[in-house]
Amino acid sequence: ESFERTINIAKGNSSLGMTVSANKDGLGMIVRSIIHGGAISRDGRIAIGDCILSINEESTISVTNAQARAMLRRHSLIGPDIKITYVP
């Protein structure tokens, strides 16, 4: 059984350190890789294959690959914290 989780990740000045791609069925974006030493890796809660539904409350539903990457990059630049809703 999968259910949504919303977490805050304190990334400070470091990068999030993950790559994503659009989910084929349009439901959010899938975590493709996690870079060791990045904020996601240090936090430890998000794993490869998890589905991200929103970043800082901006929905990732029906985004393209390019939009998913641009959204991740944009939110990575805002502030020291990032809020991610995902399904493990």
Rank of each mutant, 00 (worst) to 15 (best):
I30S: 08
R5C: 09
I30E: 11
G12E: 09
T6N: 06
T60M: 14
N23E: 10
G28S: 03
I34R: 01
A47G: 14
L72W: 04
I7M: 02
N13V: 09
I82K: 01
G49S: 01
R5A: 07
D81V: 08
S54G: 12
T85W: 02
N13Q: 12
D81L: 08
V31K: 04
I7R: 01
P80A: 13
V87H: 08
I52G: 00
M29I: 12
S59F: 01
G28N: 02
I82F: 08
Y86K: 00
I78W: 09
H36S: 15
K11C: 12
S33N: 14
G12C: 03
D50P: 00
G26Q: 07
L72G: 02
G12P: 09
R74D: 08
I61F: 12
S15L: 11
P80M: 10
S54R: 14
I52D: 03
E4S: 15
N13I: 07
N8M: 14
S15V: 11
S2I: 14
I34N: 03
N13L: 09
M18Q: 00
F3H: 12
G38V: 02
K24N: 11
H36G: 12
S21D: 12
I34E: 02
P88C: 08
E4I: 12
G37N: 08
G28R: 02
N23Q: 12
R73L: 11
I78M: 14
I84D: 03
T60S: 08
R42I: 09
A39E: 04
R74Q: 07
L27C: 13
G12T: 08
S21K: 09
L53C: 06
S33L: 00
K83V: 07
E57Y: 07
I61C: 13
T85Q: 07
G37T: 06
N13R: 10
I82P: 03
A39T: 08
G49C: 00
S15H: 13
I9V: 11
Q67G: 11
R73A: 15
L53M: 12
I35S: 13
A66R: 13
G26H: 07
G38K: 09
H75D: 07
N8W: 14
S14N: 15
V20E: 01
N8T: 15
K11I: 12
R5F: 05
I34K: 04
Y86Q: 01
S41G: 11
I78G: 15
D43F: 01
M18A: 04
N65V: 09
N65H: 07
N13Y: 11
R45N: 07
T60W: 06
M71D: 03
A10T: 14
S33W: 04
R73N: 15
I7S: 00
G12F: 07
S21G: 11
I78Q: 14
S76A: 13
G17I: 00
V20T: 04
S62A: 14
G12S: 08
R42H: 07
T19P: 01
E4F: 13
V87R: 14
G79D: 06
G79V: 06
H36Y: 10
L16F: 05
S41K: 09
G37D: 10
L16M: 06
V31P: 02
T64W: 01
A47W: 04
I7Q: 00
S76P: 04
R5M: 10
G17R: 01
D43N: 00
Q67P: 03
I35C: 11
E4H: 11
N13C: 12
I55S: 02
R74M: 06
I84S: 00
S62Q: 14
G26C: 06
T60E: 01
E57M: 07
S76E: 15
S15P: 14
A39Q: 05
P80G: 15
T85E: 05
M29G: 02
T85Y: 02
L77V: 12
N65T: 14
F3C: 13
L16Q: 02
G28E: 00
A10M: 10
G37P: 07
E58L: 04
G17C: 00
L16A: 01
A68N: 00
I61G: 15
N8D: 09
G37A: 05
G44K: 07
R32H: 08
I55G: 01
S21W: 07
I55N: 04
G49R: 02
I52Q: 01
D25L: 08
N23A: 14
T60C: 15
T64V: 03
G37L: 03
E4D: 07
E4K: 15
A66I: 08
R69K: 14
D81I: 10
D43L: 01
A70P: 04
S2P: 08
N8I: 15
T64L: 03
K11W: 04
R74F: 07
I55Y: 01
N13A: 10
A70K: 12
E58R: 05
I35W: 08
A39R: 05
I46N: 00
D50L: 00
G44D: 04
A39H: 05
D81T: 12
C51V: 13
H36D: 15
D25Q: 13
R74S: 08
N56K: 00
D25P: 08
K11H: 12
A47M: 10
V63N: 05
A68S: 05
R73G: 08
C51E: 13
E58I: 06
L27D: 15
E58V: 06
I46F: 03
P88H: 09
G28W: 01
H36W: 09
I9S: 01
I55P: 03
S21Y: 10
A66Q: 12
G37I: 03
L77H: 15
D81Y: 11
V31N: 03
T6A: 06
P88Q: 08
S14W: 10
L72P: 03
R45D: 03
T6R: 06
N23I: 02
E1H: 05
S54P: 00
N56S: 03
S62G: 14
G37H: 06
K11M: 14
G17Q: 00
I61H: 15
V20D: 00
E1Q: 10
H75N: 09
S14Q: 15
I9M: 03
R74Y: 10
K11D: 04
S62N: 15
S21V: 12
N8Y: 13
P80Q: 12
F3M: 15
H36Q: 14
R73Y: 14
S41M: 11
V87K: 09
P80C: 11
S54L: 06
Q67N: 07
S41I: 05
T64E: 05
Y86R: 01
I55C: 04
A10V: 14
A10C: 13
R74A: 08
D81A: 09
L27P: 15
V20H: 04
G38S: 07
T19F: 08
S14R: 14
S76M: 08
A70T: 09
G26M: 04
Q67K: 08
G12R: 09
S15T: 12
R45K: 03
A68D: 01
G17H: 02
I84M: 06
G28M: 01
A70M: 12
D81M: 12
T19V: 14
M18D: 04
T19G: 09
L72Q: 04
I52Y: 04
G44W: 01
C51W: 05
A70N: 11
L77E: 15
V63H: 06
R73M: 10
R5W: 03
M18W: 06
A47K: 14
L77F: 10
R42P: 00
M18T: 03
I82C: 15
Y86H: 04
N56M: 03
K24Q: 12
E1G: 06
V31I: 04
I40M: 05
H75G: 09
D43M: 00
R42G: 05
M18G: 00
K83L: 07
M29R: 02
R5Y: 09
S62M: 10
E4Y: 13
P88A: 08
K83W: 07
I30L: 08
S2Q: 09
L53W: 05
G12A: 08
R5E: 07
K11E: 05
M29C: 12
S33T: 13
A47R: 13
S54W: 06
I48V: 15
S54N: 09
L27A: 15
I7D: 00
N8S: 14
E58N: 06
G26N: 07
N8R: 12
Q67Y: 08
D50V: 02
S15R: 11
A68E: 02
I9E: 02
L72D: 04
R5I: 10
I52N: 01
M29N: 05
D50C: 01
I9L: 06
I46L: 14
L53R: 10
T64C: 06
G17P: 01
R45H: 05
H75T: 10
C51K: 13
H75P: 06
G49K: 02
R69Q: 14
D25N: 15
A70V: 08
G28A: 00
R42S: 08
E58Q: 09
Y86G: 01
T19W: 06
L53T: 15
S59L: 06
T6Q: 07
D25I: 07
I52E: 03
Q67R: 08
G38N: 04
I34F: 03
T85N: 05
L72C: 06
G44E: 03
I52K: 01
G49M: 03
G79Y: 10
R5G: 03
G38D: 07
S41P: 02
T19M: 09
S21L: 08
S15N: 14
G17A: 01
C51N: 10
R32V: 10
R74G: 06
G28H: 03
T85G: 07
I55D: 05
A68F: 11
R5S: 06
G79R: 08
T85K: 13
G79K: 09
I34M: 06
A39I: 06
S14P: 05
S21H: 10
D81G: 08
C51G: 04
